[in-house]
Each structure stands twice: as C-alpha cells, then as structure tokens.
Design a protein around this nucleic acid. Structure first.
Lengths: 143, 143
DNA sequence: ACAAGTTACATTGCGGGCGATGGACCGGCA
DNA sequence: TGCCGGTCCATCGCCCGCAATGTAACTTGT
C-alpha cells in the first residue's frame, strides 16, 4: 500500500507543532520563558491567584503536566505558589515582577512566532487554516 | 493587549498534534507500535537494512531522538540492529517478522487516525489544510 | 604509515506530553 | 463525632523532542 507521510495530517501536524514550538522557543528564550509556559502566563496575566485546578480547567493540559510546568516556572522565577487560605490542599499561583513585566514583549514574541511561519499567507488563508485546525481539534475532543 | 490562544497558530498546532498523536496512539497500541515509531516503520517497510544515518536523512528527526526510538523499537521486538558489514561504526536496521506482518493494519490505523479528526471535512478542505501545513512547515525549515 | 579531522552512534540532561498512583485534606452523612 | 468518598496536588514511569558531549571507527593529507 502506498503511504506518503506528506499526505498524512497526523505526520504533518507533528512537524508543524515542532516548527511553531521552535519558533516560540527561540523568541521566548531571551525573555526567560519556555513554549509550554506561555499558556499559563497568559491566564495569569489576565487573573492572578488562580489555583492549579482553575488553571487546569482553563487550559488543555493534564494535571501531571501542569504540576511539572508550574514547578519549572517557580524554579525559573516566573511564579510563586502560596498555600490557599481556606483549603490546605490547594495552592494559589501568583506572578513574580519579572513575569508581570514581560507581558508585552512575550505576547509580541508569540505573535512574531506565528507570523514567521505564516509569512506568505494571505489573510483569508491564515484564517481558513486556523479554522480547519479548530475543526479537527474539536473532532478529537468529541470522541 | 488582547491575546486569544484560539487565534494563535502556535497554540492550535500544539493542540492539533496532541489530538492526532493520541488518535494514532490508541490505534497503534493494539498492534504494538507508538506514534513516533510509525515513520521509521514506513521507511523500513519500503526498504530494510538501512543504517541509522540513512533513516536520519529520510526523516525529520534528530539523531538523538532516532537512537532512542530505535532502542525502544528493538526492546519492543519491532526491529533488529546488526553491525554493518564494512563499517563497524554503523548498524543496519531490519524489521522483525512481527513488524513486517503489521504493515497493512498499521497503515490502516494511521489512515483511520487521520480520518477520525478530519471527519466532516470535504475533500478540498482536507487537501487545502494539508497544503497550508506544508507551506508553514516549509517556512519554518527555511530560516 | 600516522596524526588529525570527520563520521556514526550512544548517552545525558532537559522540556513537555500522558496515565496511574498515593498522600493530605475537605465535606457530607450517619 | 467519626468515617468515607471525592478532591487537590505531587510523583513516578513512559513516549518523544532537542542540544551537547563522548567514543569508536573511518578517511584524508602529508
């Protein structure tokens, strides 16, 4: 049976994710954040003091991954974890000054990463691609 | 600055890759292969006895990743590594009977993974999405 | 023929994803 | 009150990606 990798969405999506991740990694490195940390930062820039559980509900990441990501972010001085005042199981996550200050630059870095791989795309092509990706993701979430 | 994850190709591509990978993982599990092993299997189904270096030239994977993937495949009984007859540094990779026999089912599993996330896509939409992905990947390879 | 450079591969350490499991804690119900 | 099921989080083992480094073996130039 003929099977061409380059006609497989599964294979192409892994290449695509690697490319985008690398693009963001290069740009985020100077600022001091890793690609997987960016979604967490986004949520915290819009609201601090969330618990790990609340972050989990807002992001598409498993609990084990989140715990590890937060541990790295704490180690790297992006985040502080404080005991929840009324629930001793829980923790609240706060940004450090460093993380709070990089918001503008970090968002620009993410936009630049997007743009670098989408150069040459017309506006409607970019929108269409994003829409197709959302559709496929929704199919995956369905099952 | 407003920044919506769902408008970011970087973020969506990571979700997409996770979805496709999970779809392939579920299907490949019964047969006994992991998603990252599939591209290697594809190459070996079309030609056995390749060296690690030759596989590297044919796939978009770093040497360290390949060495680890091959070690896992050997452990899982998919592959045999034999010393190269004339170059003692090199090794030749051969499939086991188990791996050779699963070719048809494995390719169908991969097609099914693709299809499951692309259900509801018209033919031209699927083709367009693949083409956009290839374009973005090419942009990333450029730099 | 031999030193020096190059090549093939393994290994290590890290980012980031997952499921499974375990400990501490909360809440509700008897 | 005291127990018990559910919840929050950490940890472990695994897959898979990367860069950097080490070792053995090949090749090349003198």
């Amino acid at each position: 049976m003929a099977f061409d990798r380059m006609d497989s969405a599964t294979y192409l999506s892994s290449l695509l994710a690697k490319s985008f991740s690398r693009a963001l990694q290069e740009r985020g490195q100077k600022l001091g954040f890793a690609p997987g940390q960016f979604p967490v930062l986004l949520e915290l820039w819009s609201e601090e003091g969330l618990t790990q559980k609340q972050l989990l509900d807002r992001l598409d990441i498993e609990q084990a991954t989140m715990a590890n990501t937060l541990a790295r972010m704490e180690r790297d001085g992006l985040v502080l974890r404080k005991r929840h005042p009324t629930d001793k199981r829980a923790q609240q996550i706060f940004l450090t000054a460093k993380a709070r200050e990089m918001e503008g630059e970090a968002k620009e870095a993410a936009l630049a990463a997007d743009q670098s791989l989408l150069s040459g795309f017309r506006h409607f092509e970019r929108e269409l691609m994003l829409e197709y990706m959302r559709m496929a993701i929704a199919n995956g979430a369905q099952n």
